[in-house]
Amino acid sequence: MRTSDEELMMRCRSGDTAAFELIVMRFKDQIINYICRSVGDYHQAEDLAQETFIRIYKNADSYEPRSKFKNWLYLIATNLCRNEIRDRSRRKTDLLARKSTGAKESDSLDIFPDFRYMPDRLYEKKERELIIQQKINCLPENQRLCLILVTYQGMRYEEIAEIIGCSVSAVKSLIHRSRRNMKKLLMESGIGESHNAKI
C-alpha cells in the first residue's frame, strides 16, 4: 500500500531522512517542471527546487497534517518563484537603465541568452517550444503561475487559489486572462496562426 504524503511528512518530522528522500523522489519532477516553466531557466529551476525541498526539511516541524502536503510544497515553490521573477524584473530594469546610460552590452548575456547559434534549437519543435516558453514568460506573475498550475500540473482551481493566495473566482479570471493573453502573444509570433491553419 502506498504511504500518503502526509504520513511521510509526519515521519520526516520525527527525523526520518528516508521518508524525506521518498518525498523528494515523488515530487522532484513535478516541482522542477513547475519552477522551470515559471522562471524559464532549467539551472535556476534546479536550484530553486533544491531550496524548496530544503525548506520543507527545515520547517518540517511547522507542518500541520490538516492541510494537504502537496499544496504546502507548491506554496513554498511558488513563493520562491515569485521572488525570482521579481528579482529578474528588477535586474532587467537595472539593465535597461544601464543600457540607456551606455553600459557594456556583454552584461546582458546572462539575462537575454542568444540561442541562434545553438544547434539543438534549429529544430522546428525546439524552436516552437522556445517561443512558447518565452511567451509564457511574458505573462504577468499571477497569470503565469495560474496557467502553469492548471495546464502542466493539472491542479484544481481550489488548490490553485490556496497556493496563489486568492479566491477561486479570482483564479478563474486569472486563467481566462492568461489564456487570452497567450492567444494574442502566440498569434503575434505566428504560432497560433499556423496551428489554426492546420486545424
Partner: peptide, 18 residues
C-alpha cells in the same frame, strides 16, 4: 487551441544527480 499549443512543451527531465 491555446491549451493544445501549451501542452506541446515536452516535460523537463530531472538530472540523476539532483
Amino acid at each position: 487551441q491555446v491549451d493544445h499549443l501549451l501542452k506541446q512543451l515536452s516535460p523537463i527531465e530531472t538530472r540523476d544527480q539532483f
